[in-house]
Design a protein around this nucleic acid. Structure first.
Lengths: 212, 212
DNA sequence: TAGATTGTTAATCGATTAACAATC
DNA sequence: TAGATTGTTAATCGATTAACAATC
């Protein structure tokens, strides 16, 4: 509850994992957890867990541990999971469908308010409680509903022109599943990349390494 | 071409990005590239690029730069992209379908040889050139074809028992899209996690942060 | 030769771990 | 009070950046 603590990006990247774990403990009615226990379950050191929680004050009690529910809430607040950022999805292929379903099951700060596709057969389909709209409707939809984030599930060859459109319509945050590099052109865009290809190549390296 | 250089994991995680970029340059017929140029395009420093390439000998020439094609090949070899690791996919929902399609387009060290699902309607469908098989066939299929890696696109509640089955059948490498934590139970398993949830929460943090 | 750019060492920075006093 | 466990400082480790001599 400090006023805007500085939290480094490496800590931020760990917060979702803590959060997921705490949600599970909370659901099971467990009230307290020690840094040692958390560390073991998550593959960190106890020292690191305490260091991490100290960034934002924490809810630790010496000799006792951390109050699960409070800590969970605090981390949720820091991550902004209690907000409702309106977002749209571009591309309703298999991946787009998976993400749309995923996002509607996993409330995490976002509300999906529109899905767009260029394909004749896809437009009009029902998906995650929404109807897939034609890409041509994008402009009027954005003017009216003001989404702040766009999820890009389109082939990477199509991504550039779509990002141009979206950026012009005022969307500057992207969850990008294509491997087109948005930041190269739009320096001030906020981009979270999910690079399946990179993940696959890294896995390939690790498997190849143990094989020889 | 050194004999097994040590490359740190942070460098490894950058190699796919270099690789993708070099493939692009190579395709465009560009023969040389400097560390400065690469750095600018990828958001690193030139120093880091040189440091990275030095881990494995590199193909740099002073006063000239790096030979694109050779460097690309070398990185590909290090990543093991020239290998063919046989893998299977469990779960042919939207995400599974997307991954199956993805992997068959993006050759990167893996060959998808089997797809399994428990759902009546899905089994028998054709996907990425394969027919979706019933989960019950898993044992005999593995005995015969010896896949080394499994892609998990199943709900996280189902993951544990599936991993138990796979591990017993000799599969110890996983590309895991569920958020069940495999490493907790199987310490020697090689796991590459794709945590969509974590990625979404991190994005939420970053958007929330700039909003206030 | 002069200019460019690498390879490599040294300096800096940040993140992780260890240690222990504070305190519940 | 004794035991447990945090909060926090100091030590270590590793990764990034800067600098420049080597050399194409």
């Amino acid at each position: 509850m400090q006023k805007k603590p500085y939290i480094s990006m490496s800590v931020i990247r760990r917060l979702p994992r803590y959060y997921r774990f705490l949600v599970d403990l909370d659901r099971r009615g467990i009230l307290r957890v020690s840094s040692k226990e958390l560390a073991e379950k998550m593959g960190f050191t106890a020292s690191q867990v305490r260091q991490d929680f100290n960034c934002f004050g924490g809810y630790g009690q010496q000799g006792y541990g951390y109050a699960v529910h409070q800590l969970r809430e605090e981390i949720g607040t820091i991550l902004g999971l209690d907000r409702v950022h309106k977002c749209i999805l571009i591309g309703a292929g298999n991946l787009g469908k998976a993400i749309a379903t995923h996002i509607s099951y996993n409330f995490a700060g976002f509300e999906l308010i529109g899905i767009f596709d260029r394909g004749e057969q896809v437009v009009g389909q029902s998906l995650a409680g929404l109807t897939v709209l034609p890409y041509g409707n994008l402009r009027s939809f954005c003017a009216e509903n003001k989404p702040v984030m766009a999820i890009l599930c389109v082939p990477h060859t199509a991504t550039e022109s779509i990002v141009d459109d979206l950026y012009a319509l005022g969307i500057k945050s992207f969850w990008n599943f294509s491997h087109y590099d948005i930041s190269l052109k739009y320096k001030d865009a906020l981009v979270e990349n999910v690079q399946l290809n990179d993940s696959m190549m890294t896995l390939c390296y690790r498997i190849s390494e143990i094989e020889e």
